[in-house]
Amino acid sequence: MDQIIGRVAAGKVTDENDGYYFVQIEGATFQLDKNEIKKPLQLGSNFRGFTYENESHKMQITRNVPKIQIDHYGFAEVVGFKHDLGIFVNIGLPNKDVAVSLDDLPTIRSLWPSVGDHLMIALKIDKKGRIWGQIADEEIFNAIAKPANNKMMNKNVQATVYRDKLAGTKVITDDYHLGFVHPNERDVEPRLGQHVAGRVIGVHPDGSLNLSLKPRAYEAISGDAAMIFAVLKHSESGQLPYTDKSDPKAIKKFFGISKGQFKRAVGALLKQRLVTEDEQFLKLTEKGIAKVVE
C-alpha cells in the first residue's frame, strides 16, 4: 500500500454504486467520484489516477492529478493550521488538504506561514502511509533559480520567503531569482511563505540578489504625513476641506498640529503624488487611493 499512496497508479474498475466507481490496485480498493467521469466506465475498465487517503480516511483515486507529487515540487497555498500538528496546504485534491509538520516549521510561532501564504513543497509518505508536505530545501531552490544581471539594480521585485534565519531572510522572486534580506534591511522579520515587496540593492557575481524590504526614503510616510494620509483614506469622499490657505486655528483644531507642520506634511504627500491640492480641498490621487495604509 505504501508504494501506491501519493502516486499515479493504474487499476481496474471492479464495482460501483450511485456515487462512486471502485478501482482495485494491487489488492487495495480506491473510490472514484463519478462526478469526475464524463463517459461512464464499464466493470473491468482500466483507470489511471492519483491515489490518496481523503479527509474521511477513505482511499480515493482522482483523475485530477496534482502538479505537486513525490519529488515534484511546486508552490501550495496555506489554508489552515493546527498548533500541535503544523499547517495545511491545498495541492488541488477535491477533499484533502496536506499537512506540513510543525517539525519542519520555524521554532518561533509568529514566523509560521499564515493562511494565503505559499510554500514550495513536494509530497512524502511516512511509515504509516500518510501523505505529508515536504518543504523544499536549499538545493531545490538553487536548482530552479535563474541568475539575475546588473540591470536588476534598484529594481522593485516581488518575492516569497523560503527560509528564515537569524542572519537574514532568504527569498525567491516571482521571476525565480534568489535574494537575501539582511536584518538591517527589514522593519520586521517576514513569515515563512510570505509574499513581500522589495528592491534590489546588490547583485552578486553568481546572479543572486541583495534586497531591501524598506521603502526608499522618498516613499516612506511617517509622522504628520502618515496621520493626514490616514484621515484622508478614512474619509468617505477621499478629500478634506483643508489646504495651505486654511486658517491655522482650524488646522490645529482638526489635526492637532501647527500650520507649519501641516504644510510640511502635505508637501511630503504631494511629492509622492499621493494627494493633490486646490484652493479648497486636499484630495487623494489614484495612487493615494490604491496605497494601503500601513
Rank of each mutant, 00 (worst) to 15 (best):
E236M: 04
E236D: 07
S237M: 02
S237K: 01
Q239Y: 03
L240D: 10
L240S: 07
L240Y: 02
P241M: 09
P241L: 08
P241K: 07
Y242K: 04
Y242F: 13
Y242M: 06
T243N: 15
T243Q: 14
T243H: 12
D244W: 04
D244R: 11
D244Q: 12
K245C: 15
S246H: 08
D247T: 06
D247C: 13
D247M: 14
D247K: 14
D247Q: 10
D247G: 15
P248D: 01
P248S: 09
P248I: 00
P248R: 03
K249L: 13
A250T: 13
A250D: 14
A250S: 13
A250I: 05
A250L: 10
I251Q: 06
I251S: 08
I251L: 03
I251Y: 00
I251G: 10
K252L: 03
K252G: 08
K252E: 02
K252R: 06
K253L: 04
K253E: 07
K253I: 02
F254K: 01
F254W: 00
F255T: 01
F255P: 02
F255R: 01
F255Q: 00
G256T: 00
G256S: 00
I257L: 01
I257H: 03
I257R: 01
I257P: 03
S258E: 00
K259N: 09
K259P: 03
G260D: 02
G260C: 02
G260L: 05
G260N: 10
Q261P: 04
Q261H: 05
Q261V: 01
Q261I: 00
Q261R: 12
F262V: 05
F262E: 01
F262L: 03
K263C: 07
K263E: 03
K263N: 11
R264G: 02
R264K: 14
A265K: 04
A265Q: 02
V266L: 08
V266N: 10
V266I: 14
V266M: 07
G267V: 14
G267I: 11
A268W: 04
A268K: 14
A268D: 07
A268C: 12
A268N: 11
A268M: 11
L269Y: 05
L269G: 12
L269N: 06
L269V: 09
L270C: 11
L270Q: 13
L270N: 09
L270E: 10
K271C: 05
K271Q: 08
Q272K: 10
Q272C: 11
R273Y: 15
R273M: 15
R273T: 15
R273E: 15
L274N: 10
L274D: 11
L274Y: 04
V275M: 08
V275I: 07
V275L: 07
V275C: 12
V275F: 06
V275Q: 07
T276Y: 13
T276R: 12
T276A: 13
E277A: 14
E277R: 09
E277H: 05
E277C: 12
D278M: 11
D278Y: 07
D278T: 09
D278E: 12
D278L: 11
E279M: 07
E279T: 07
E279V: 09
Q280K: 12
Q280C: 09
F281R: 06
L282H: 04
L282D: 10
L282G: 13
L282A: 13
L282V: 05
K283I: 04
K283R: 12
L284A: 06
L284W: 00
L284V: 01
L284Q: 05
T285V: 08
T285H: 09
T285Q: 13
